[in-house]
Simulated scan of single mutants.
Amino acid sequence: MTEHRYPSADIAAIERVIRERRDIRQFAPGALPEGLLGRLIDAAHLAPSVGYMQPWRFVRIASSATREALWGIVDAERRATAAALPTRAADFLKLKIDGIREAAEVLVVALMPGREAHIFGRRTLPEMDLASTACAIQNMWLLARAEGVGLGWVSFFDPDEVARLLAMPPGSRPVAILCLGPVAEFPPVPVLESQGWGKRLPLDEVLFEDRWKAGAGGTPTAY
């Protein structure tokens, strides 16, 4: 046992919040607890980033007009996605894919402009700016779940339309719309799993040793 190990109760709490985190679409009325939004953004800002570039930027959607315009962009992509699904368009349209209108808070997370100047850790993997931002969102997600608050990551949008709506500078790129707020419950399993869109893969299908496991990592089912 290392001297740097956390107490067992703390480790159990970390494992619990990882297991019970959910992508939330259904929100209950009410505001976030006082000061929680700032703490959530602070948790995101403590995330690791390649070359310490800290590429994440957050836009809080404060006005109802901007929130409604953002919802319109998401709804347009929802309908376009349904039209592009080969077999499950009707099933997809039954899903609630966002909580923009109901959530207590809405944030747009974007990549900063000027990222090409950061070479450290990105020369062959420029997408590490996005990976770093995903780490920031996960930090926020886990703290939100520990606080009993729902967070949903919405990815159904045209990034150029969102960038225009929010007057983002050239070179920046929105990558997530986050909906946050109180919830009536946290589903025991992910909603898409409970509705037959997928299932958690067993570890032997995602963990290999020395080289890619023969027969693993096949093409997923197309919808």
Rank of each mutant, 00 (worst) to 15 (best):
R60V: 09
A69H: 10
P170M: 09
M1N: 03
A184H: 13
V74Q: 07
R19A: 07
P48T: 06
L165H: 06
W197A: 03
P55L: 05
E209P: 01
I24D: 02
V175M: 02
V189L: 14
F157T: 03
G51C: 06
R25Y: 00
R25I: 01
P7C: 14
P188W: 01
T124M: 10
D204G: 00
A131H: 14
L142V: 05
L40A: 01
I177P: 08
A214R: 14
L203N: 08
V175K: 04
V17D: 03
D75Q: 13
I24W: 04
L125Y: 11
P113A: 09
I24R: 03
A163F: 12
S155Q: 12
S63H: 13
A144E: 10
G198K: 05
A84P: 04
L36E: 00
L165F: 01
R145D: 00
A62Q: 14
I119H: 15
G35N: 06
R39T: 04
A117W: 10
E34F: 01
S63A: 11
R88L: 14
L32K: 01
S172W: 01
V191K: 14
Q195D: 05
P174D: 12
A184V: 09
G72M: 06
Y52W: 14
V154S: 09
V189D: 12
Y52A: 12
I100N: 02
V74H: 14
E209A: 13
P170E: 09
T124I: 15
L37G: 07
F58S: 08
L166D: 00
M53E: 07
A216P: 03
Q26K: 15
M53W: 10
R101L: 13
D204Y: 00
D160N: 10
M128H: 13
R60C: 04
